[in-house]
Design a binder for these strands. Sequence first.
DNA 1: AATGAATGAGATTTCATTCAT
DNA 2: CATGAATGAAATCTCATTCAT
Lengths: 198, 198, 198, 198
Amino acid sequence: MIQTRRIGAENSEMWARLVDAAEQVIREDGYAAASTRRVAQAAGIKPSLVHYYFPTTDDLLLAVFKRGAAQSDAMIEHALASEDPVRALWRFFSDTSRTALTMEFMALALHREGLREEIARHSEAMRARQTELFERLLGDRLGEIGAPAGLSVILAAIGRALVMENGLGIGAGHQEARALVETWLGRLLPRSESSEKS
Amino acid sequence: MIQTRRIGAENSEMWARLVDAAEQVIREDGYAAASTRRVAQAAGIKPSLVHYYFPTTDDLLLAVFKRGAAQSDAMIEHALASEDPVRALWRFFSDTSRTALTMEFMALALHREGLREEIARHSEAMRARQTELFERLLGDRLGEIGAPAGLSVILAAIGRALVMENGLGIGAGHQEARALVETWLGRLLPRSESSEKS
Amino acid sequence: MIQTRRIGAENSEMWARLVDAAEQVIREDGYAAASTRRVAQAAGIKPSLVHYYFPTTDDLLLAVFKRGAAQSDAMIEHALASEDPVRALWRFFSDTSRTALTMEFMALALHREGLREEIARHSEAMRARQTELFERLLGDRLGEIGAPAGLSVILAAIGRALVMENGLGIGAGHQEARALVETWLGRLLPRSESSEKS
Amino acid sequence: MIQTRRIGAENSEMWARLVDAAEQVIREDGYAAASTRRVAQAAGIKPSLVHYYFPTTDDLLLAVFKRGAAQSDAMIEHALASEDPVRALWRFFSDTSRTALTMEFMALALHREGLREEIARHSEAMRARQTELFERLLGDRLGEIGAPAGLSVILAAIGRALVMENGLGIGAGHQEARALVETWLGRLLPRSESSEKS
DNA sequence: AATGAATGAGATTTCATTCAT
DNA sequence: CATGAATGAAATCTCATTCAT
């Protein structure tokens, strides 16, 4: 679905520089701040060059999202391969930097049809992968949790809430919530396995 | 302190009409769409009249938030007074319409200093009220949950995640997550017991 | 030439309050800042009340000017009646507060026909009065100065320049200029007369 | 430091056209009239193009000032190199067209912090240059004048006053003031001597 | 591969002023 | 006396995007 008008190559140095700049702007001031001018300024180039690589602003935002999504995918696979995959996933979910960016894109996607599909598709894929992981790792031990997909939803939900509220300066109950998650994970994944790590 | 900035009276019919219009626009297309023109159009008035009532756009957004917050407060108090307060709260948290608006304001507050404080303050107050409620209702039965504040965080988190993902067309794991919450609530507060609360 | 539409009486308390407020705004931020809203805010009243007393903004500015002009007239007469009238006049010319306001009105009058006539008329009248004074006081001693009207122009010019440059943070040569004026005045009005004062 | 704000090149034809248009508007109706629309209209272009070359209105005003200041500098150097430098300077000070523009900028700078520094800096530099000139030319003959910096202040003051009052239609005492200045200059620098300056 | 120029739309806000009550 | 409501114009500035070179 790449538009024919785009000339800037996806593997060029400038392309990466622009995606970097856009991501930085989004992190600092939100997606609404990612205007042609602002991004160009952050990248140290002229505004029209942005449109040379990304015909529309949505194209640029999508590129930032896709790169972040690929990184998330890699992080999940890395967590999957670690010694304590479930706790690694929880760290992934509650990672401030990455989750803050994810939240920006979710907020953006809510009102930008062009991006919604891509973002939704990726979220579903990530969830499916995680669900598969939980199933394989926890299997019969899921017990009361019932379904691994639910666990994925809940961990993601709590991680996002902590990050967003943190950004707003809200902290009440956060430590308790974290402790609660730890308790659950401890019951799912007996302490013995994880205490060997540190 | 005779008068600061707002000129249009807070109790006038037009004031309410504008807040209605702004809320409608935010619901439809997000906070970024709540521009002077758009809101004026939705309210059927001239753009400059918007600024007669709300000197700055933030003033208008804040008014929408405050009214919504007051409604939320009322809903929480209503839930508190119901027969099954904890489940009523959960319904409150997972109410799509209200939570979607809340999410808009949280996303907005992340990058608008002027609104952040007010929104954070209200969130903290709501959390405190809920924590107090959980403490009183569940008391010794909190058991593994440990702290009531954590429970408030988690229920809010899950409710918001379900609503947001719903808005994006993501549905995987939702039913399982809901079922899991129901299970927890059932163990904390068996439906049979709920009517016994002395 | 009072417009029939004006209803607020010129001797009412509110009238004076508005003129006070407008003068204060002009002193602080210049004539361009003396908008209906700003003045109303400074006076602690509603904007429409400003127009009740002063149908147009020019009417208000003119009122401020006229009151200031009357005060200037009184100051000049007071100087005239003092022991050392010429030096009193020089103090009048180099008085920062009053001159700064005068400069604002001159700058305003340059581009507002409605005010120009009034301001020019008053300036001419003041000059005539001063000229008369110089003639009477210095008479034959004017010598090289030649004409008393020229002395009035020059003292006013230097006073205004010092005040304006002061406002801009320019100070070079000011002390020397002041000393020079003192020297002239000293030659015109022998030291003996003025040294008796202090 | 790749690029800060200005986009339109300073040496382009349009840039000069805009500065011309702005200067013309300021001359005609004062700095307050130099709005985006008005200047665009005077230049025969679309309003948004003004902001392409001058991100803020202050940038445009500053450009007009700087160009005028450069011209003033050139005029002063030209006067300095003339046969009768002091009288040439006096002509410079009492030049209506240039001084009227200078006065506009001084009035503007009084209430615009962003421009004040630049304008003050230039005024101080001009004064220093003139002081140096007077010192060199008049040296021991300064006598009663005392300091050359004071002379610069006074000539500038009188020139500006004459120009401003002229703009307001005030003429009383002007001829006498001019004659007085001529007398002074004549005593400082007899016309016959001026050609002898070794 | 890149850029300078341009544009029309629109955002936010302020303005003076009018008018009915 | 006074005010609340309203309005149309205008000011400043930013936006995404196009296009010719």
